[in-house]
Amino acid sequence: MFKARTTTGLSILAAVAASTLLLGCSSSVEVKKSTPPTLSADKLSGTLSEKLAAATGQPKPHVSCPEDLVGKVGTTSRCTLTADDGSTLGVTVKVTSVSGGRIHYDFKADDKASPAPN
Rank of each mutant, 00 (worst) to 15 (best):
Ala83Val: 09
Ser97Trp: 01
Gly24Trp: 04
Ile12Pro: 00
Lys33Gly: 02
Ala15Asp: 02
Ala109Ser: 14
Ser11Thr: 12
Leu69Tyr: 01
Arg5Val: 09
Asp84Ala: 15
Ser27Val: 13
Val91His: 05
Thr20Val: 10
Arg5Ser: 09
Ser26Tyr: 01
Ser45Trp: 02
Ala116Phe: 08
Val63Glu: 06
Val63Pro: 01
Gln58Pro: 03
Gly74Asn: 10
Pro59Val: 14
Phe107Cys: 05
Phe2Gly: 13
Lys32Ala: 09
Thr82Gln: 14
Ala83Ser: 15
Ala41Pro: 02
Val16Trp: 01
Thr88Gln: 14
Leu39Val: 07
Leu23Val: 13
His62Ser: 15
Thr8Ser: 13
Thr38Gly: 01
Leu48Val: 02
Thr6His: 11
Val29Cys: 03
Leu21Gly: 12
Lys33Thr: 04
Pro36Ile: 08
Glu50Thr: 14
Asp85Lys: 07
Cys79Glu: 12
Glu50Ile: 12
Ser28Pro: 06
Gly57Phe: 08
Asp42Gln: 10
Ser11Asp: 08
Ser87Arg: 05
Ser26Arg: 07
Val98Lys: 06
Ser40Asn: 08
Leu23Cys: 09
Lys112Ile: 09
Ser77Pro: 00
Gly101Ser: 10
Pro37Trp: 01
Ala15His: 06
Asp106His: 03
Gly46Tyr: 04
Gly24Glu: 06
Thr7Asn: 15
Ser49Asp: 04
Leu69Ser: 00
His104Asp: 02
Ser34Ile: 01
Lys108Phe: 08
Leu81Cys: 12
Thr88Lys: 12
Ser87Asp: 07
Ser40Gln: 10
Thr8Met: 13
Thr56Gln: 02
Ser11Tyr: 02
Leu69Cys: 02
Ala15Ile: 00
Gly100Pro: 04
Ser77Gly: 08
Leu89Pro: 01
Pro59Leu: 14
Thr35Ile: 04
Gln58Asp: 15
Thr96Ile: 05
Glu67Gly: 09
Pro37Leu: 06
Gln58Ala: 15
Lys108Ala: 15
Cys65Trp: 02
Ala17Gln: 05
Lys51Val: 06
Ser64Asp: 14
Ile103Thr: 06
Ala41His: 05
Ala18Asn: 04
Ala113Gly: 07
Leu69Pro: 00
Ile103Leu: 10
Thr8Gly: 09
Val31Phe: 03
Ala41Ser: 11
Leu44Thr: 03
Lys112Val: 12
Pro117Trp: 04
Ser77Cys: 07
Gly9Ser: 00
Pro66Ser: 07
Val16Lys: 04
Ser87Pro: 01
Pro61Gln: 07
Asn118Ile: 13
Phe2Glu: 11
Thr35Tyr: 04
Lys51Asn: 06
Lys51Ala: 11
Val70Thr: 07
Gly74Trp: 05
Val93Asn: 05
Leu89Lys: 10
Pro115Lys: 15
Tyr105Glu: 01
Asp106Gly: 10
Ala41Leu: 05
Ala109Thr: 11
Lys43Tyr: 01
Asp85Ala: 05
Lys108Thr: 14
Val31Ala: 11
Leu89Phe: 14
Ala18Gln: 10
Ala54Phe: 03
Thr76Ile: 08
Thr88Arg: 12
Leu52Pro: 00
Gly74Lys: 13
Ser99Met: 13
Cys65Pro: 02
Gly86Val: 09
Thr75Gly: 04
Pro59Glu: 11
Ser40Lys: 09
Ser64Phe: 05
Leu48Asp: 04
Pro37His: 01
Thr75Lys: 08
Ala116Pro: 09
Gly24Arg: 05
Val98Cys: 10
Gly9Thr: 00
Ala41Arg: 08
Leu44Tyr: 00
Gly90Ala: 14
Arg102Trp: 01
Gly101Pro: 07
Ser49Asn: 04
